[in-house]
Nucleic acid binder design. Structure first.
Length: 394
RNA sequence: GGAGGGGUGGGUGAGCGGCUAAUACCAACAGACUGUAAAUCUGUCGCCUGAAAUGGCUUCGCAGGUUCGAAUCCUGCCCCCUCCA
């Protein structure tokens, strides 16, 4: 088999790169965006539809599939690819993010994390070794080390201790890894502290992985800070290995992070926004529920080549959302995923043409990002509301 | 004809003397969502002023009355519903 990653071209003005990721289930051009399908499905879309949208690779999730239907069932049904009928490449996340974000964490030590299932309250002990075993049984093309994901608000000491534990776990994962067809990626941590990032990049790269992820970003920190951390971290990663920024998926972030040398991204954002009625256009994001679309005859985005924009008016989509028709969620998801995939195609071809920086500047100039202040404010309220509901259940 | 129940802000519907410009849900309007516990969550929602705190004005079928004070009590009128004949 050819090697996992081939670097094809570098942008002369920025850190952007074009390359090819070669996996047992096919090759995907980079930079690449992976839609998220945690439960073995990218919500509302069939594998055929994903292909037609230009999706090359998807992300799925250890935590969710381990709890339900269970690793053994998926193994018996022929592995995750066959189970969900997706024959393209899959990357599975280790489950670390869920264990630390769902708030059911009971205790944690160097051996692993004791947590309770959000489904039935049962107790589970997720160790680095188990995370690898599960991912080997699921059979994804790229698998991730188990890592500790502390919240952005944590202080330096906590972030450092979490990083050190992630380092220990990365070693354990690497030792336990058997199925060499699956590429195991290491994850750099260190929060928003450049000195920790430097230390983490140095340690993780010294272990020698076929690819490197950057974790612990896009957790509510200002964008400038995320950019700064990438500026300081990416250059410390080997040039001939793919770099994967976990959890990033807004159009402006994708462009800016590609410019900083990232090759792979995943995010639930485009699909979730679609289900919640927010659609991308080249200028900004719109809520299709807004009254302005009530009578709009043309498509959501006249520049879009997706099925939704080719066949339906914005007014129709508005109506589907207002009436909560199931087709609404599918059509909006189709549009958003296609928007992002097309953006990635444009990014790549502009890199290959040596015109990436121009493309980037034009895009950012015309794109109005969502207001950062309301964003963090709303997120706090959302978390609070979720917490409140949670206590009622328990 | 007899007996009873009811008319509350765009809708459904709480309140039944001061804490009520009036609960809640829906609708409407706007915002958020980034390694998916998310077809979710948040805010606004009588009128006028204000960035906001606030201030002013007009509201609970209509018209009077009682009271320091009424959507809430009394009287009359109008309208609706259920049951009996």
């Amino acid at each position: 088999m050819s090697q996992l990653f081939q670097l094809e071209k570098k942008c002369p003005q920025t850190g952007a790169r074009a390359g090819m990721l070669n996996t047992p289930h096919g090759s995907v051009p980079t930079p690449v965006f992976l839609p998220v399908g945690s439960q073995g499905t990218v919500k509302t879309l069939t594998p055929d539809e994903l292909k037609s949208l230009g999706v090359g690779m998807i992300l799925s999730n250890t935590y969710h599939l381990y709890l339900r239907p269970g690793t053994e069932i998926i193994r018996k049904l022929g592995g995750l690819h066959r189970f969900m009928s997706w024959d393209g490449p899959i990357l599975t996340d280790s489950g670390g993010f869920q264990v630390f974000s769902l708030g059911h964490l009971r205790s944690i030590n160097d051996e692993g994390a004791l947590f309770r299932s959000h489904i039935d309250g049962s107790e589970h002990f997720l160790t680095p070794e188990l995370a690898i075993e599960i991912q080997e049984l699921l059979g994804a093309d790229i698998i991730m080390v188990l890592d500790e994901c502390p919240p952005y608000e944590d202080d330096f000491g906590k972030i450092r201790r979490a990083m050190e534990r992630s380092h220990l776990w990365a070693e354990k994962c690497k030792q336990r890894h058997r199925r060499r067809k699956q590429a195991l990626f290491g994850i750099v941590h260190g929060g928003t502290y450049p000195e920790l990032r430097r230390e983490s990049a140095s340690f993780i790269t010294s272990l020698g992985f076929p690819g490197y992820a950057i974790g612990g970003l896009s957790l509510g920190e200002p964008k400038e800070l995320m950019h700064l951390i990438l500026d300081r971290t990416v250059p410390l990663l080997p040039e001939n290995k793919p770099r994967y920024l976990m959890g990033v998926g807004s159009p402006e972030d994708l462009i800016e992070c590609v410019a900083r040398g990232v090759d792979m991204f995943d995010s639930a954002l485009p699909t979730r926004l679609g289900r919640n009625g927010a659609v991308f256009t080249r200028n900004r994001r719109y809520s299709i529920n807004n009254a302005r679309f009530k009578t709009k005859k043309g498509p959501i985005d006249p520049d879009c080549d997706c099925y939704t924009c080719h066949n339906f008016s914005a007014a129709y989509l508005h109506h589907l959302f207002k009436t909560q028709e199931l087709l609404a969620y599918r059509l909006a998801t189709i549009h958003n995923v296609r928007f992002i995939m097309r953006l990635m195609e444009q990014i790549r071809s502009s890199i290959l043409d040596g015109a990436f920086n121009t493309f980037r500047k034009d895009f950012i100039k015309n794109y109005e990002p969502t207001d950062a202040e309301t964003r963090t404010e709303q997120k706090k309220k959302w978390l609070k509301a979720r917490q409140g509901k949670h206590h009622l259940i328990e």
